[in-house]
Design a protein around this nucleic acid. Structure first.
Lengths: 121, 121
DNA sequence: CTAAAATAATACCCTCAAGTAGTATTTGAA
DNA sequence: TTCAAATACTACTTGAGGGTATTATTTTAG
């Protein structure tokens, strides 16, 4: 969609392109529309359109909408209890990585992605 | 073990400390000894000792020995086919992250970890 | 010789996340 | 008023990773 961000896209079409199930796609799209990135138009001749400029959609927001950024920001070793107060052995060594990651996801927007050299998403 | 790296440790003891299964521990330890980080001493009064200074054991080597670094260096979007030649949309945006990650794992050694402020591993 | 240790190989189990499926409902242009 | 679209909710399947279990073998101090 980001390749031609002004078009309206039907679920039907996206399902065919992405080769995922109808229900799954709709669930994701509903998440995204609730988050305000796309607008869903119901009824006949409905579909999905971007609700804002793709240059204003940050990757971190997308991740938050569909799976949650926490997943990527948690303890490297997987300890639930790990925190600044109760660190794991890797905690301090991993800090810069976590920051870099957060920065990447927060600064990049959909418009920064490379849709030209690509056929799979 | 890295807390007192000159001792000899029996599987029995490590299993109790780490609360993981005997077999699982031994599998990991065997991996590590094959990789040359620890030496395993068989027979009665056997156990595991470090085979080299923990300052010379890089995190990347450990990961390689037990699960493979590839896991961490693969495509962010999970595409098997993703590569420099056949990039996914995130490929270029993700490059710096991958490099930072590789750098972190390659530069840090066991000795760099923070064993003092910690009780869980 | 024997007991206590590590090794080896293979099969199994458990959980969780990713994805699928079913079914009923609501929306809105023609 | 009809039809094609999106929504909502719930249940199911599936695959992989992390971990366990079994059983048999090898090693070496005492």
């Amino acid at each position: 969609m980001a390749k031609a961000p002004d078009e309206l896209y039907r679920a039907r079409f996206l399902v065919e392109q992405l080769k995922i199930s109808d229900k799954y796609l709709r669930r994701l799209m509903t998440d995204l529309s609730k988050a305000g990135f796309i607008r869903s138009i119901q009824g006949r001749d409905g579909g999905y359109v971007f609700a804002k400029s793709i240059a204003n959609i940050h990757l971190s927001e997308i991740v938050d909408a569909v799976e949650g950024m926490d997943k990527y920001l948690g303890c490297v070793l997987g300890f639930e209890e790990c925190s600044d107060d109760n660190p794991c052995v890797m905690h301090s060594a991993w800090l810069p990585m976590r920051e870099k990651l957060l920065e990447t996801f927060s600064n990049k927007t959909l418009a920064d992605l490379d849709f030209e050299h690509v056929n799979k998403y």
